[in-house]
Nucleic acid binder design. Structure first.
Lengths: 104, 104
DNA sequence: TTATATACCTCGTGATATGATGTATTCCGT
DNA sequence: ACGGAATACATCATATCACGAGGTATATAA
């Protein structure tokens, strides 16, 4: 998959992955694997960015001796998901242009 | 529109814009305006990149005293458009995941 | 004569994804 | 008991990219 195309959805995929339940880095990667694969370095960069922009909050929890950082989506994060759906409509019309040009 | 999402389609839009007829910078911008807006600096950067990667070829033509650089798509460029259509299928399944997560 | 449209180009900046690398613990097979 | 895989976090350097700001030049319309 084209790198540029990926970038457009990575953030939103991570938000979607934590929408229904608090999750943590390692689990997010495993959950997303069937949908989109991403490395740890990529994920943690994204999580940091989403935290900085207040789309999610973090809570460190001790779990079986290991530290886990649970990520929880915020209202701003939910709003970002809504925005994405609108942006997708725009994307669809752009796609239509590309395909139309392709048929002529 | 989200900057990252744009990046995924900019190159392909430019290719689509020159697919059916040779075009030149200024015209490409005007043709794409209803679909996606892009500045000259953005376009020329893209055209340069597409030329470097052999997706299009350039031919300078004198037109009414002014120089025009006509861009023509190559087989590699056409192949890129085909690839994009396949990538879009992937994108649709990613989108489905995001929306599905949003419904739960 | 002034402004707008046409037509090209370059440079610096900020944002980004990713591989490589590092630390530490637990669990499982042999 | 030992070694490796899995779990879980993190940072850094690098390469790629879009874009605003700025620059050059001609033709046409106000």
């Amino acid at each position: 998959m084209d790198a540029q195309l990926r970038r457009g959805v990575l953030d939103v995929c991570v938000l979607a992955a934590i929408k229904n339940e608090n999750s943590y880095g390692y689990k997010i990667i495993k959950d997303l694997k069937p949908v989109i694969e991403l490395s740890e370095s990529t994920l943690y960069t994204i999580l940091k960015r989403l935290e900085d922009s207040k789309m999610l909050v973090v809570k460190s929890v001790e779990f079986e001796g290991r530290l886990r950082k649970y990520y929880h989506i915020t209202p701003a994060g939910l709003q970002r998901l809504e925005e994405f759906k609108n942006e997708w409509k725009e994307m669809m019309s752009i796609y239509a242009f590309i395909v139309e040009a392709d048929l002529k």
